[in-house]
C-alpha cells in the first residue's frame, strides 16, 4: 500500500510568554507515522493528548503560538511530493479543498446562515473553479444525489436543517471537489447516535466512491471500529500504539490501550469496569521516561527514566512500551534457543 502522508519525528510545541513567564507545551512530541493511500487512518486519544494539534500541523494550518520545532510532513501524491511545512500561503490555498480537504467538528458554525445551501455550494465551487451558477447547481445536485441526500436541502437555509443533515451537508461541501486526502476532526462528536451513524455512512460512501484517503480524529473508539482501517493511539503528545483496527480493538498490547478498551461499557455485558487510575499529565511538564508510567501498573525502573521508542512487534503493529518490547524479545530468544 503506497504511503500518501509521511510524518517524520514531528515535534510541535506551543510557546507562550505571559507576565515574563515562558511556557512550552509539548503537544506533539516526536511522532513518526505513515498514512497509507485509500484507507481510513484513525487517530484516537483523550482530550489534551495532542490529536487536534497533530491535525493542524498535518494540514499546514498551524499558527503561532504553535511552532513546528522539528521533523517533516510530506504529502506523496502521484504527480508531486509536497513538503507541507515549507509551503507559502498561495500554494497552500491551491492545494486546499481541491487536493486536501478538512471536515470540521461543529457544522453549525461553518455554513453561511444567510445563504441557501445551493448558494453556499456555488460560492465554494466558484472560488476554486470557473463555473456559472447553473453549472455549480447541476454539480451540487448530482453530488448530493450520489451521496443520498434529499434534494430538498438545496433550497433550505442552514438553520432549517437538522444537526445531522447540516453535518452531512458540510461533509458534502468539503468533498465536492474530489480531494485525495480528507482530514476529519471529530466529525461525529456531539451528534446523536442515529445521526452519527448517518454521518459515518456518508463518509464510507465517499471513500468507496472517490477512493479518497481519510485521516479520522476522534476519541470515540466505537466510531473507529466502524470506519477506520488502521488506528494510531496517542497519549500525552506521543504515539503509543499503531496497528490495524482489529488488532488495536481485539489484541492491544500497550497498557494504556488495554485500559482504554477495557473501560468502555458494552451493551452485552454489565460486569464492573474499572477506569485508569490517575489523570493524564499536563503537557507543559510531562513526566520523565514513558509518559504513562505514573498511571501504569506494569511500570518498572526503566520506564521512569528512558522514553520508549515505537518498536514493530509484528509487521504493521508498533508499540512504545519497554515491558511489551522485552516480553516479545524474550519470546523470540526462547524460540531461537
Amino acid at each position: 500500500m503506497p504511503t500518501i502522508v509521511e510524518v517524520k519525528d514531528l515535534k510541535a510545541y506551543y510557546h507562550t510568554h505571559a507576565y515574563g513567564v515562558q511556557r512550552t507545551v509539548k503537544a506533539v512530541d516526536g511522532i513518526t507515522l505513515n498514512i497509507p493511500e485509500g484507507q481510513v487512518y484513525g487517530i484516537a486519544g483523550e482530550s489534551g493528548c495532542g490529536k487536534s494539534t497533530l491535525l493542524k500541523v498535518l494540514l499546514g494550518a498551524h499558527k503561532p503560538p504553535l511552532y513546528v520545532v522539528d521533523g517533516s510532513v510530506r504529502y506523496l501524491f502521484d504527480d508531486a511530493q509536497i513538503a507541507t511545512l515549507s509551503l507559502d500561503e498561495n500554494t497552500l490555498r491551491e492545494l486546499r479543498w481541491k487536493q486536501v480537504s478538512y471536515i470540521p467538528q461543529g457544522s453549525m458554525h461553518v455554513l453561511n446562515p444567510v445563504r441557501r445551501i445551493e448558494d453556499i455550494f456555488h460560492d465554494f465551487v466558484a472560488a476554486h473553479q470557473q463555473v456559472s451558477k447553473a453549472e455549480s447547481t447541476q454539480l451540487t445536485r448530482t453530488y448530493l444525489r450520489e451521496l443520498g441526500l434529499p434534494e430538498k436541502v438545496m433550497a433550505a437555509y442552514p438553520h432549517q436543517l437538522s444537526g445531522g443533515m447540516r453535518q452531512r451537508v458540510t461533509i458534502a461541501l468539503a468533498t465536492i471537489l474530489s480531494p485525495k486526502l480528507i482530514f476529519a476532526d471529530e466529525p461525529t462528536t456531539a451528534l446523536d447516535v442515529i445521526v452519527q451513524r448517518g454521518v459515518i455512512q456518508i463518509l464510507k460512501e465517499i471513500k468507496r466512491r472517490e477512493g479518497s484517503t481519510f485521516v479520522l480524529i476522534t476519541h470515540d473508539l466505537g466510531v473507529h471500529a466502524n470506519l477506520a482501517d488502521r488506528i494510531a493511539v496517542l497519549y500525552a503528545g506521543k504515539l503509543v500504539e499503531e496497528a490495524d483496527s482489529r488488532t488495536i480493538l481485539k489484541k492491544p498490547l500497550h497498557p494504556y490501550t488495554k485500559f482504554l478498551i477495557q473501560s468502555l461499557p458494552r451493551l452485552d455485558d454489565r460486569s464492573t469496569r474499572v477506569s485508569i487510575p490517575g489523570r493524564p499529565p499536563a503537557l507543559d511538564n510531562p513526566p520523565d521516561g514513558c509518559r504513562f508510567h505514573p498511571r501504569c501498573p506494569l511500570a518498572v525502573d526503566k520506564c521512569r527514566t528512558v522514553d520508549p521508542a515505537m518498536v514493530a512487534i509484528q509487521p504493521g503493529h508498533r508499540v512504545a512500551c519497554h515491558v511489551v518490547t522485552e516480553a516479545t524479545e524474550e519470546v523470540r530468544h526462547a524460540a531461537t534457543a
Binding site: 452519527q196 466505537g222 471500529a225 480493538l249
Partner: peptide, 8 residues
C-alpha cells in the same frame, strides 16, 4: 443498533 461499538 446505532450505538457504535468498539468491536469490529
Amino acid at each position: 443498533e446505532s450505538i457504535p461499538q468498539a468491536d469490529p
